[in-house]
Structures are given as C-alpha cells and as structure tokens.
Design a protein around this nucleic acid. Structure first.
Lengths: 169, 169
DNA sequence: CCTTGTCCTGAAGTCAGCTCCAGGATATAA
DNA sequence: TTATATCCTGGAGCTGACTTCAGGACAAGG
C-alpha cells in the first residue's frame, strides 16, 4: 500500500508544496518514485514524516532535521548522535516553554492592569497623580491582588519573572 | 533622568538597530528627541518597551503591537480594545504552550526510542523482523514503559498526543 | 479524443524581522 | 585638536521557510 503526495498532504495536514520543499531540502531521501517519476509514500515514510513535523514544531531548523535524517541513513553507528540531537532539542524546547510561561505571567499582569482600568473607566488609576507615568511599584499591588485571591502559584511565577527582568538593569 | 539608545539597548537586551527598527515601524511614537535629534528614553518609556518586548516574545507581530500602541495614544476610550487584544494574544500563547507540550511528549517518546536502541546497540529492536519498518504499536510499548516507571503524568500526556495525531488519518 | 485532476521540475517571489552600510553630526577625553 | 565613541538617516541586504509560477507529463472517465 502506498500513498500519493496529495494523499499524504491531507493525512499530515501540510501542503503539497511544503512536502516537495522538504524533499528538495533533503528531508525525505527515503521516499521512492514509481516508473513515471511520481513519489510513492509508504506507511513507514509517513511515520518518519511525523517525526520530521514534530521536530519542525519543536523549532528545529530544516538544516538540523536533515542532519538527523542523514544520520539515520548511516545506520546504527549514529544512534548516539541521533539521541544527542533529540536530547539537545528537547532541552531547547523546555527552555522555550519556560520562557513562554514567563511571558504568560507578564501578560496576565497586563490583563489585570487593563481589567482594573476598564472597571475604573480610566487608565489614570495606575499613574502617578498628575502625570502619564505608570506607578513604579504596581507589581507589588498586583502581587497583593494575587495573594488576596489566593492564587499562590501565579504569585510565585510572577515573582520569578520580576526577578529575572530586574537582573541586568 | 533619561537614557540614550545605547543604554536602553543594554538595559533591555535588544540591539540598537532593533530599537530603531521598532521606532521606524511605529512602536515607539512616545519616545522624544533632544535638540540635536537624538532619542531620549524616560523610565516610563522603558517600562512600555518591556511590554512591547513581552508581546513580541508572545509571538505578536510588529503590526499588531503597533495597533496596541496606537490605541494607547487614543486614551481611555480604547481601554476595552486593549484589554481584548491582550486577552486574545494570551489565549494564542496558551495554545502555543499546549502545542509545545505535546511536541515535548513526542520528543520524549523518540528519546526513549533511541535510548533503548543505543542500549541494544541497534535500531532493529524497534523494527518488524526482517524489514526496516518501525513496529506499528511501539507507542503501546512506550506506554507500558511509562506505566512501569510510574510516570503517570507523562503517560497521560502521551495518550492525549496520540489521540490528537490519529484523529484525521 | 478530450477534459479534468494530479503529478513533475527549476526558478523566481514573498514575508517578517531584523541587520548592515554609507555618509555624516556631535560629544568626550587625552 | 585629534581620536574615539555614540548617535542619526535612508536604503539595501539577509535568512528561513515556504509559496507561486511557467511549462509540461500522464491517467481515468465520459
């Protein structure tokens, strides 16, 4: 049983052009052609392509993925290299997730800022009286708000973000 | 007290060129110039720029950020719009994080795959005997492994990812 | 046999987000 | 006063990951 490029495109949710681009870039050296030059994908090919798409989702560049695929073609001697490559990218990904969580924490703070401003009908409640400058220890006020809400987890997150952001001022 | 572009660059950890690019793109209309045309950043400007960088980190495009800044200049009538914009992007960000966590789960699976292959000295332990095809229910084996390890949280994550991935085949 | 659909290639185009460059002004220190 | 550092502008260039295009081949149904 084999699949055409169009069928694979639907199965994996990527465009035909993207698949051809990946092939051109050396990500799909394992895909065979039939007698008139059309690509024929096996179930195993599709399995491998899922891994490729997963790496792409993890933010791995096409060049790095092609390295991985190259190693694979070289057989068992490259198993450790492949493991290492995945391990490195998993660590990167963990860092990405952590960074996004920090960003999230800050966005929540900003949402509180606007929530309260909308309630008050004006942004000036957050300004130093008579100016357009934001009160400098608004973060303390927000921390207080989180505490009074009993949201200790977010309080902790926000404290970490603050620490980080104030580090190299 | 005001800061030069170079000082701000160091404070915020972005290059001078990037700051100028942001200014060109309409993200910094609030930054004033001195008599010889140099930018002078106030503490409040820097505060605002942190929010801009945060939005950028959350994956918001320069065009969308400039909308936010535009709203800000229009005063209190746009408070709700600004709140909505943040809310929308916070939701996007939450989705991003969730997606990355799924990717993470799959990467962990692949790491197990290579870990065990390295231990065995060959990848063939994961192949259908006599072929180069990966065993089709390797995921079950991995689930078993997670269970035996007592890693129930990851077991749950992995199960979700599998469900999702098998949905539109 | 003709139309419609899917496939092929190489090459050029697009987009976001920077990044660099040329050419020039001002400021600070020795 | 001369060297060095920092700033300014407009505009060109770069990178990665596609995306589109021109021009053509084959296959199946009516």
């Amino acid at each position: 049983m084999s699949y055409s490029i169009g069928q694979v495109s639907k199965k994996l949710g990527v465009t035909i052009d993207t698949i051809r681009y990946y092939d051109k870039s050396g990500l799909l050296p394992f895909v065979k052609r039939n007698d008139i030059g059309r690509r024929e994908f096996t179930d195993n090919d599709i399995h491998l392509m899922r891994t490729i798409i997963c790496l792409k989702n993890a933010g791995v560049s096409v060049v790095d993925i092609s390295k991985f695929i190259e190693y694979r073609l070289q057989g068992d001697s490259t198993l450790e290299k492949r493991y290492q490559l995945l391990e490195d990218h998993r660590k990167d990904l963990q860092q990405q997730i952590t960074d996004l969580e920090d960003t999230m924490s800050y966005l929540k703070f900003k949402e509180w800022y606007y929530q309260t401003a909308v309630e008050a009908g004006t942004e000036t409640i957050h300004f130093v009286p008579g100016t357009n400058e934001v009160i400098s220890d608004l973060d303390k006020e927000y921390s207080q708000h989180l505490k009074s809400e009993g949201n200790l987890k977010e309080l902790q997150n926000f404290a970490n973000v603050k620490d980080y952001r104030n580090r190299n001022n």
